[in-house]
Simulated scan of single mutants.
Amino acid sequence: MTYSGAVEVGGPADVHELSDLVISKIAVGPMNNNAYLLRCRATDEQLLIDAANDSARLLSLIGDDSIASVVTTHQHGDHWQALDEVVRVTGARTYAGRHDAEGIPVPTDVLVDDGDTIRVGRVEMTARHLVGHTPGSIALIYDDPHGHPHVFTGDCLFPGGVGNTWGEERSFASLINDVETKFFHALPDETWVYPGHGTDTTLGAERPHLAEWRERGW
Rank of each mutant, 00 (worst) to 15 (best):
L59K: 13
D144W: 02
H133F: 07
S60C: 08
A211M: 07
A96D: 02
L130E: 03
V151G: 04
G160Q: 02
R207H: 06
A82D: 01
P208I: 04
W166A: 15
H99G: 03
E124V: 04
Y36I: 03
N164Q: 13
A13T: 06
A52R: 06
A56G: 05
D178K: 12
D84I: 00
R88C: 03
E215K: 14
N32Q: 14
R57I: 01
H16D: 13
N53V: 00
T2A: 13
G198K: 03
V89M: 04
S174P: 06
E169C: 00
D144S: 06
N34Q: 08
G147S: 15
S171W: 08
P30Y: 08
V7K: 11
G204V: 02
R216I: 14
I141M: 04
D109Q: 09
S69D: 06
A205R: 15
G163C: 09
E85S: 11
R214C: 07
P105H: 02
H197S: 05
G91R: 06
A205W: 08
A27V: 10
A139E: 07
L21W: 04
T202Q: 03
L47C: 07
E45M: 08
S24G: 09
T73D: 01
S60E: 14
E190S: 15
A205I: 05
H148E: 12
T181N: 13
D54K: 07
T72H: 04
A35K: 05
L157T: 02
V110R: 11
H16W: 11
D54R: 09
P12E: 14
H133D: 07
Y194P: 02
G167L: 08
P145I: 10
E102S: 13
V7P: 13
T73R: 08
D14C: 13
S60D: 14
R93V: 08
L130Q: 10
Y36W: 01
V193K: 00
Y194F: 15
S137T: 06
F172C: 12
K182E: 13
L38F: 15
D44L: 11
L59S: 06
G103F: 07
G147W: 06
K25I: 03
T202K: 04
P195I: 02
E85Q: 12
D64Y: 00
G204W: 06
W192C: 02
V110Q: 07
N177C: 05
A27M: 13
V70Y: 00
E45T: 14
C40T: 11
I62D: 03
G5T: 03
D200W: 03
G217Y: 07
E85H: 07
V110C: 07
N177K: 09
V9I: 15
Y95V: 01
P107I: 05
P149V: 04
L175K: 08
D144Q: 06
D114Q: 13
A211K: 12
T191N: 03
I118D: 04
D50C: 14
T117Y: 02
E45K: 13
V28L: 07
R98V: 11
E190R: 13
R93C: 01
G161E: 01
F183G: 11
E85K: 11
N53M: 05
N34H: 10
